[in-house]
Amino acid sequence: MSYAYLFKYIIIGDTGVGKSCLLLQFTDKRFQPVHDLTIGVEFGARMITIDGKQIKLQIWDTAGQEAFRSITRSYYRGAAGALLVYDITRRETFNHLTTWLEDARQHSNSNMVIMLIGNKSDLDARREVKREEGEAFAREHGLVFMETSAKTAANVEEAFINTAKEIYEKIQEGVFDINNEANGIKIGPSHSPTIPGGISGPGGQGSAQGGGCC
């Protein structure tokens, strides 16, 4: 299918917070209570529409396991967006957010949009992390925040789509260099960009940062 843009996402967070379920809910609109443990990196894709434009989301679901982070780090590099997930019923998954965030910031490009997600909102009775705490963390670190439930599908669409909107806005503002695929954004096959900041200035082959000589 043709698309105007392709955005690469990565889903990160501790094991068992519901990353794979969120992905499945978003791509297949179903919930699978018993999910195989993610080992290595898995992949999902879905088309969405923003501003009348078809956008393909290519989503990388990672293993939360510590030792698998070595693999995850390779995927940060090409990601335009990240969903950082914790489980509202397990405080330790919230406590680990800082480590995840550091890892992500260190290995991704600085423009990557990060969405903080408190998952399993359907289990309000067993809640260990207050909504306000999530909000506060997000504010402090400049993230977007949302509570979701992969089980009831609450806010799942929104989480993925709002992240895409944010990326889209950054493209419009010219923050993202869409010609650099390392940013996790690709222009669709049949799409000519009308976005500012695309073509480099005079002396095109001079490197973008250097400005070139003339």
Binding site: W60, G78, E181, A182
Partner: peptide, 8 residues
């Protein structure tokens, strides 16, 4: 050329 070793 885009360089990445992973599934992408």
């Amino acid at each position: 050329i885009e360089v990445t070793w992973g599934l992408d």
